[in-house]
């Protein structure tokens, strides 16, 4: 059983890498896949996310979000935020909340789950990187590093 699994979710497009940057920052701080801790970057996992929630006591998910807040804003979601998804799964449309609903239905959620969103700027194919988002990823990595040192 993995003690803590931190999963950065993203894609190679601009600020959509925010979740990956959190993993980069944790690795820069010296964390790696050992002592019951797993770090991983997931590229648009869809339903595959469900299997990455299993066999871990604590899973932290970090994904890019576009809520209209200032780029670089960090938000923590609890289960009340993602409950209530009401079907309509399409082959391309299985997002993080839907995957969590699916995992819950199968009893596959870990005992502890934290979901963080980092507000991003542009996420186009050739978009640049928003400095505030990169900085927020580092800040979130420092926040996560505290309890796991």
């Amino acid at each position: 059983m993995t003690r803590l699994r931190i999963l950065g979710i993203g894609s190679p497009s601009g600020d959509d890498q925010a979740g990956w940057w959190v993993i980069d920052a944790l690795e820069d701080m010296g964390f790696s896949n050992r002592h019951g801790i797993e770090l991983d970057r997931l590229d648009r996992p869809g339903a595959v996310l469900v299997s990455r929630l299993e066999h871990a006591a604590w899973v932290v998910l970090v994904d890019a979000m576009a809520s209209g807040a200032i780029p670089g804003t960090i938000r923590h979601f609890d289960r009340t935020d993602w409950r209530g998804y009401d079907g309509g799964l399409s082959s391309h449309g299985l997002g993080v909340f839907a995957a969590l609903e699916l995992a819950e239905a199968m009893g596959s959620l870990p005992p502890r789950l934290d979901l963080y969103g980092i507000e991003i700027g542009a996420a186009g194919h050739s978009s640049g990187i928003t400095p505030a988002v990169r900085e927020a990823a580092r800040a979130l990595a420092i926040r996560l590093a505290g309890p796991i040192r």
């Binding site: 299997s51 699916l102 199968m106 596959s108």
Partner: peptide, 16 residues
């Protein structure tokens, strides 16, 4: 079932 989530509730091992 109306959705995969409903199917997952009654047949979790199959969906897994």
């Amino acid at each position: 079932c109306n959705s995969a989530i409903e199917l997952a509730q009654i047949a979790p091992d199959v969906v897994r």
